[in-house]
Design a protein around this nucleic acid. Sequence first.
DNA 1: TTCATTCTATACCTTTTTATCTTGTTTTTT
DNA 2: AAAAAACAAGATAAAAAGGTATAGAATGAA
Lengths: 156, 156
Amino acid sequence: MILSRTSQYAVQAMIYMATQEPGQPILNKDVAARLNVPAPYLAKILQALAKGNLLESFRGRLGGFCLRPEGLRTSLMDILVLTEGPTFTKNCLLGLKQCSKETACPLHFRWVPVKERIIELLNETTLDKLSQAVKSGKYRLADVPVKLFPELDVLA
Amino acid sequence: MILSRTSQYAVQAMIYMATQEPGQPILNKDVAARLNVPAPYLAKILQALAKGNLLESFRGRLGGFCLRPEGLRTSLMDILVLTEGPTFTKNCLLGLKQCSKETACPLHFRWVPVKERIIELLNETTLDKLSQAVKSGKYRLADVPVKLFPELDVLA
DNA sequence: TTCATTCTATACCTTTTTATCTTGTTTTTT
DNA sequence: AAAAAACAAGATAAAAAGGTATAGAATGAA
């Protein structure tokens, strides 16, 4: 309803990073496996997050990605500004290029307060809170992978 | 931030129809000119709205599109369900296929109340209200077309 | 050093969305 | 009946988003 797939993967990945031991690089492929997402595509996203200073990256053996030292304070807004572009909360619902208090579309004054609520949510929701939630075990970060042969479980 | 271009055009077009005299068919090309959007593309959108019973269409001379008799009661939600698909308010922010109270993503319980506000807005905002707003002259329905030769205005 | 490992960068392919075009069908007027 | 006006429908094209592939550079360890 609101986010591109790229943003969804980015948020999922960042939350996952936040659940891991700080300073310990995680492999792109491990994140991809955990989230059940195509690894090469996720790589691009993680690289963008690193360029945007939300992640640190290390090459070579023992390399990988991890949160920056203060990374737990990263908000959803910080992530989405990178993945959706800096104006993604600024646009008119009807797509008008000019839509402000003075040049308002007919939805403007109805939409603004709702949009404020959304922005508030994005700003106040941090990786700290989200990773706590995931670690509690009560929430799921990714879809359960489809089981092709569930009958094999009896062997496990 | 939320709506596809198709939806934006659809809403703009519906509001415009609602400002016109009821029962009087309006030409697709006139709507397109008023909204400054590509006519063939808009035609498809209007046809879809007609199929979805939000508009009536008439072929031949004196044909065109107009609101159905009770069309002013149409809500934004009615329009968007057609253009974005019936599940557009149902999806998980993180894109999980399963995300409900029992199988919640870590954003679920934060997002739901905000989403409720959005849904409320979409349901209670009708073409009646929006067309009134436009008719008052205080709101604009489309971008002012770019003026190539503004100096010609002195002739008008 | 040399090698495997892992990110980096770029280019490419595929799918979806947006937009256009063409041909037909219906309806009204003359 | 014929012509004109307008929608209907499907094919096509362009642009954006999603996803893949490959060559290159940095790192650590044998």
